[in-house]
Amino acid sequence: MRSQAPRGLHIVEMPTPHVMVVPPAPGPQEVVGLCERAACAAASHGIAVCDVRALAGLDLAAVDLLARLQLAAVRAGGRVLVRNASPALRGLLQLVALPVELEREVEQGEPARRVEERGQPEDPAL
């Protein structure tokens, strides 16, 4: 008896990158550890996701930390995605022109990504 190959689309599970939570005030040893983790995540997943919600200081030390994480990820062949950045941190990163990718936040009343809204019957087709 011969088994047939399954028909249709094959389901491929993509590995979910691990989210690194940045502590409120990381010390020098913690920064080294975060950079190593960012490099490992970038090498294995292509992206290092950094949750900066707890980051207390919105100063050049925060910019330096994110620059180091970005450098470690790029050297490993990936990139950094900054998650849960406050508006103040977003403004600071824009001011210093640090090329990190900021995760887009869904605004109130806006549908989540990849959600199709049902159109009205009288709406023209696009």
Rank of each mutant, 00 (worst) to 15 (best):
S3H: 11
S3D: 10
A5R: 10
A5S: 09
A5G: 06
P6H: 08
P6W: 12
P6G: 01
P6I: 06
P6C: 07
R7V: 03
L9Y: 05
H10F: 04
I11T: 03
I11S: 04
E13F: 10
M14C: 08
P15T: 02
T16E: 02
V19P: 04
M20G: 00
V21P: 07
V21M: 09
P24H: 13
A25V: 12
P26S: 05
G27W: 08
P28Q: 10
P28N: 11
P28Y: 03
Q29K: 15
Q29E: 15
E30I: 09
V31T: 10
V32P: 06
G33V: 07
L34W: 00
C35N: 05
C35F: 01
E36Y: 02
E36D: 04
R37I: 00
A38K: 04
A39M: 05
A39H: 08
C40T: 06
A42Q: 02
A42E: 01
A43E: 11
S44E: 00
H45M: 01
H45F: 00
V49F: 02
V52D: 01
R53V: 14
R53M: 14
R53N: 12
A54K: 15
A54P: 15
L55N: 08
A56I: 07
G57N: 13
G57L: 15
L58F: 11
L58R: 13
L58E: 13
D59H: 01
L60K: 14
A61Q: 07
D64A: 15
D64K: 14
L65F: 15
L66Y: 12
L66P: 07
A67R: 15
A67T: 12
A67G: 10
A67D: 03
L69K: 12
Q70D: 05
L71C: 03
A72N: 02
A72Y: 02
A73L: 01
A73Y: 02
V74A: 10
G77E: 02
G77P: 04
G78C: 00
G78V: 01
R79T: 15
N84C: 12
A85I: 09
A85S: 03
S86L: 12
P87M: 06
P87D: 08
P87Y: 05
P87C: 04
P87F: 03
R90D: 00
R90T: 05
R90E: 06
Q94K: 10
V96F: 04
P99H: 03
E101I: 09
E101W: 06
R104Q: 11
E105D: 08
V106P: 05
V106G: 02
E110Q: 06
P111D: 10
A112K: 14
R113E: 13
R114D: 14
V115T: 11
V115K: 07
E116D: 05
R118H: 06
G119K: 12
G119C: 09
P121Y: 07
P121A: 08
P121Q: 09
E122V: 14
E122N: 11
D123H: 13
P124V: 02
P124G: 04
L126P: 15
